[in-house]
Design a binder for these strands. Structure first.
Lengths: 205, 205
DNA sequence: ACACGAATGTAAACACCGTTTACTATTACT
DNA sequence: AGTAATAGTAAACGGTGTTTACATTCGTGT
């Protein structure tokens, strides 16, 4: 049967997922228990198992939604910038870093090999942003903004770069190496090291 | 009193830590329970609390030992290479990646912001390798192997690069983007993208 | 050599966790 | 209206990290 309204099933399933997302964002993975999710969604812990096979499946769903939101942010970041420009690539890196900063707890989960398994890039929503990045790289090469090269290799290089900046700063406090109180922010270091990416490190010219 | 032998305290404490390290390496964090560590070290779970305040403190100790071993590997990697050479810097990256590959489970923990807290780089054994890397960079600049620049910024750039490669590959499978069955290895991608680091990406010369 | 206090270990309990079970209430459809 | 699937509940189960009450061992001063 089809009614315009959502089925009761869908309603509580959504409430569970919403509660799970909120809980993960505020309490982190430590405070994320089935009973806590249940209470937040006005349901009993056992009821969650009518909608998700186990806790991991619920976490996976949250991660999936996180990646969808992530992809949306990446698309928004480049939409108003000229096709084929280096600015588009820089904007993607910036959006990546901004997302990580604004959704810290969620980001820690998205790419955490301990809490969620290793993901095939192809199966991620929007290929985890890889597809967008690769397209911008190809276009930039066509427009002469980037040296011609293997776009997959460049995409991996640039992705691992922003990812490394974010993950390293999540794991380590560089407050004593860079005299910024509380440590420098990812966005600053991303900007400050950009020149190395464009011009290279070699002294030889 | 002082005897040549270790005190009983130190003995069982070592046995606990050894068991913890072995368990973490084989079963990962999922199989790492206080009772499992206890059984492996021939002791009761409660006894562990005479030596470590809580589970996290035990994990922290394992992480600390991991960082010490990590630093040793980095030092070994450069000792026979000429001071001031770019080869030293490349060797550090290589050792970083090799360590991550050979101690995968341990590495996932060392830099995981979810399982261990954010660490001050200065407090890590060997500053987590930062001190070694920075010294090699300064020496390379003095010998003209690297463009003159802020060594801290370059160190962060290079560290985040290897870290990003490793963490990204731990989280994601790129088997479909690079036609290497099961996905490419970190060492391959590290080598293949090195030219971007030395020469830069810009088309403009 | 002995005694005594601290250090170390044990077994059992506690509260919490993910998950399952037995049961009830609701829903959708003939 | 009747019925079979669906959705929800409360209680239980085994496992977890941690604490407790108690026993043992150890180190040391006399």
């Amino acid at each position: 049967m089809f009614t315009g309204a959502l089925s009761q099933t869908a309603r509580t399933q959504d409430r569970i997922v919403d509660a799970a997302r909120a809980l993960l964002a505020t309490a982190g993975l430590a405070g994320f228990s089935m009973r806590a999710v249940a209470e937040r969604s006005g349901v009993t812990a056992g009821a969650i198992y009518r909608h998700f096979r186990h806790k991991e499946a619920l976490v996976e769903r949250v991660v999936e939604l996180g990646f969808e939101q992530f992809e949306r942010k990446l698309l928004e970041a480049i939409v108003s910038l000229p096709v084929g420009s280096f600015a588009r690539i820089a904007a993607l890196g910036d959006a990546y870093i901004r997302f990580a900063a604004e959704h810290e707890e969620e980001f820690k989960i998205l790419f955490n090999p301990v809490v969620t398994g290793r993901k095939r890039v192809k199966d991620l929503p929007g290929q985890g942003g890889y597809a967008i990045l690769r397209r911008c790289i190809v276009e930039a090469m066509e427009h002469g903004a980037l040296k011609e090269s293997d776009p997959d290799l460049v995409a991996f290089y640039l992705w691992s770069r922003v990812h490394g900046i974010v993950m390293l700063l999540l794991a380590c406090d560089f407050g004593d190496e860079f005299d910024v109180e509380g440590g420098p922010e990812a966005a600053e270091l991303f900007d400050a090291t950009r020149v190395y990416v464009t011009a290279g490190l070699n002294a030889r010219e």
